[in-house]
Amino acid sequence: MLKFVGKRLLMMIPVLLGISFVLFAIVEFTPGDPAQLILGEGATREEIEELREEMGLNDNFFVRYVRYVVDAVQGNFGTSYRTGKSVVDEVLPRFPVTLRLAFFGIAGAVIIGIPIGIISAVKQYSKLDMVCTITALTLTSIPTFWLGLMLMLLFALKLGWLPATNVENWTGYILPCVTLTAGTMAMILRMTRSTMLETIRQDYIRTARAKGASTRRIVFKHALRNALLPVITYVGMTFGIQLGGTVIIESVFSVPGMGSLMITSIRMKDSPVLMASVLLAAFCAGLVNLFVDILYSYIDPRIKSQYVKG
């Protein structure tokens, strides 16, 4: 198992290299001159040329890419073109904000979505199931930004219970997290319900019933572990993506997270910041994926035996 984890961690190196290369090439092909950007509109041609030379922008593409990678490995991601601060200082304070948002958003979705999905499946076609299914369908159909704005109108403007935008203390996280939870929760609910329904029709569930097991025992001991695999994949993927920033929610609630940082840096052609944030997002997604795979192997012995063999 340890060998498997080590192998997977090593495999992340080529993945990150690949991503950085593609990213570097895209930035290269987009129009705009960093030297011009830093010096502003009033700079003369000589000044720009001088700065370009100084920054090494006149070198060959591959030379610059290798230089970037070598620097990055040593923890130097350059300085922001926009603010002149070190990229690490730009990105790091924002990451915990996004992490909190994504974590509580997912946690809420899992805590609400999975149990309700199970109940919904076990009591298929009951009134409760109808209500849950319709609610879930509604929530998945509502655009996130609209839901966010409505919640903001209600709780911040009308009732004045919660702040609309400030994430200085925890109350500011409630609205963005709830908005984020709503959509994910609805998806998790629907997935749990459908995989659960599929699982409780399996032959081994009938075997368990023939043993005299109660419905509760069948659901929790026999069906749940089998039904949760696809749900875990979905949760892992969504969490991985959200760690890279939840752009819409961050813009609606003006949350200073990774998503808004990425958008700003794209708009301002602040390529060092962009590169670093995308790489961080990719790294997180890779870690979450690895974690999900390890979790998988504990749930399903068939998968574990594949890992151990390989």
Binding site: Q202, D203, Y204, R206, T207, A208, R209, A210, K211, G212, A213, S214, K221, H222, R225, N226, I299, D300, P301, R302
Partner: peptide
């Protein structure tokens, strides 16, 4: 009462052994 009976008074062997056992339990 049926739960008490199943597995103790009467038990059943199903057709397909490939799918009759829970894959995640020893």
């Amino acid at each position: 009462q049926l739960k008490m009976m199943r597995g103790a008074t009467a038990s059943m062997i199903f057709q397909d052994p490939m799918t009759s056992l829970n894959p995640v339990i020893p």
